[in-house]
Amino acid sequence: MANEIEIDASSLTPRELNSKIKEYAKKFDKIIIKNPGAEHYLVAGLVDDTSIVIEGSAGYFAGTMLDKGNITINGNAGWFVGDNMTSGEIVVNGSAGDGAGQGIYGGTVVVRKGVGSRTGEIMKGGTVIIGGDSGFMTGIFMMGGRMIILGNLGADAAESIIRGEIFVLGDVQSLGKNAIIIDITDDDKKELKEILEHYDFELDDEDYDKFTKIIPESARPIYGK
């Protein structure tokens, strides 16, 4: 059995809770957080390879600047879950607000249900997987990495995308500037199947043929070719 500990967050400020998490992360393999109360900044700046389970919803900036660790949120997350993370994994077993995976450099953010707007804005690397719909300007200013959306995409998808790719199973309401749709390849399908099965998303084989792929039309849309 993993070396684990439980923290009751009900009487702790986010700062106190995060200090405890950092202290325990050096001693325990797994930390379970009870009564998170949808507080903001939960598990900010974790740099140890530790499993964190949040039993409930988290507020804004859950797992911001995560490096190496993995976080499971058994509830919803507010705005900017996984903001600026560099490696590791965050799985939200509910929905999330705006800016899920904002500015990530690496690692994986998974949200099982739908999310708000501007998912993966300015992301530079890593993977964002959304099990439901993603709203307005998903992937705005995206500079790398990949996003996989299993629901529909809102208006102005991939607005001003520079690098990176967005795979969409549902409908795309409209594309933003510098975004184009291309056919997905067999390698893309294989890659999608691999990662989606890894995260227990159950799709039929023919579903993989239905994905749309969005990429930038130009890497230098403003200053020339």
Partner: peptide, 21 residues
């Protein structure tokens, strides 16, 4: 504005985002 407020009066396992516009 935030789920933390909804959680005071209702089960928040199914929270809906209000989308732009």
């Amino acid at each position: 504005s935030e789920e933390v407020s909804l959680g005071q009066v209702i089960d928040t396992s199914e929270v809906e985002q209000i989308y732009p516009g």
